[in-house]
């Protein structure tokens, strides 16, 4: 009974999103909703085009990747390859614990420290920009990417390394040519999950990206990603209005995006397990 109840809830989420999101697709049309360039929910007549919001999400996520991939994967390689056992036993749990720091804390830090710094360094009118959001999200995702990548690296059989070293390759060559390719799909799973976290992150972007729902033309202007749009506007939207449904429509889009990310991650990790003979 209980088991079915919880399955019911999980199916329910999809149903609820669909039921509440579909009216807006009917009203504005799927194409106009997804690719409309204007998000003016409170104008008369209102316009519900989420392209600026989607682009903002895309930009912030992409920027975050540029930060978290080198740092996260690099740290994972360091932990796996260079850190001694004692150092690793100390650092790995710390990184896992930091992965649990609430996003609001990152947002808070971004708002008070990073945004003013960005404003000063780049001489901008405001510090709350897509760039600021990217940095904070990137730092936030480092622990996730690092710990999943490190797991993937530690699954690479010792024999692979030994075979390479025995052929006269040094550790760096072994790392680049044997270990990383072997763990490659595991690392990509980590990156995709990090990305998925960045796309879905709400509070940080709400606090540091400035929140202007305009077409983002540069990294250094305020933008409003999809998640923060929902968070910022749901409080004002009248239940049952087009605006209300439009926000659910955004929720639906987010749901589909994370679904796609997860399916890709699942496919890659399955291939990884097969490649290394880990079964399943």
């Amino acid at each position: 009974m209980l088991a079915f109840a919880s399955l019911l809830f999980l199916v329910g989420i999809m149903v609820v999103l669909f039921l509440n999101g579909l009216p807006i697709f009917k009203e504005t049309g799927v194409f106009n909703f997804l690719f409309g360039r204007n998000w003016y929910p409170t104008y008369d007549p209102p316009e519900f085009g989420i392209l600026p919001l989607a682009l903002a999400s895309l930009m912030v996520t992409f920027g975050a990747l540029l930060v978290c991939v080198p740092l996260g994967v690099g740290s994972a390689l360091y932990l796996n390859e260079l850190a001694g056992p004692r150092q690793k036993a100390f650092l790995k749990p710390i990184i896992e614990i930091i992965a649990g720091v609430p996003s609001i804390v990152f947002g808070f830090f971004g708002m008070l420290i990073v945004a003013p710094m960005v404003q000063k360094i780049f001489n901008l009118p405001v510090g709350f920009t897509a760039f600021t959001g990217s940095i904070i999200l990137g730092i936030m995702a480092v622990p996730t990417v690092c710990s999943i990548s490190e797991d993937a690296l530690s699954y690479v059989p010792k024999s692979f390394r030994e075979a390479s070293l025995a052929l006269g390759a040094n550790r760096w060559q072994t790392l680049i040519k044997v270990v990383i390719p072997a763990a490659g799909s595991g690392i990509s799973t980590g990156i995709i999950l990090g990305m998925s976290r960045a796309v879905g992150e709400t509070m940080t972007v709400l606090m540091v990206t400035g929140g202007a729902a305009v077409m983002p033309k540069s990294f250094f202007i305020p933008v409003r990603p999809m998640t923060s749009t929902i968070a910022a506007e749901m409080g004002e939207a009248v239940v049952g209005s087009s605006h209300f449904h439009a926000l659910f429509g955004i929720g639906l889009v987010l749901f589909v995006i994370t679904l796609i990310f997860n399916i890709i991650a699942e496919m890659i990790s399955r291939r990884f397990r097969v490649k290394l003979g880990l079964g399943r």
Binding site: L7, L10, G12, I13, V16, L17, L19, N20, L193, S196, R197, V199, G200, E201, T202, T227, I230, A231, M234, V239, L247, F248, G251, L254, F255, T258, L259, F261, N262, I263, E266
Partner: peptide, 27 residues
């Protein structure tokens, strides 16, 4: 399939759960 959908739901943004809660529990 159930296992995969559960994994998927674990990755759904928290704000989307907020929407669900609003529609179902609050309203």
């Amino acid at each position: 399939i159930i296992r995969m959908s559960i994994n998927n739901l674990a990755g759904v943004p928290s704000v989307v759960f907020g929407l669900f809660g609003l529609a179902v529990f609050v309203k």
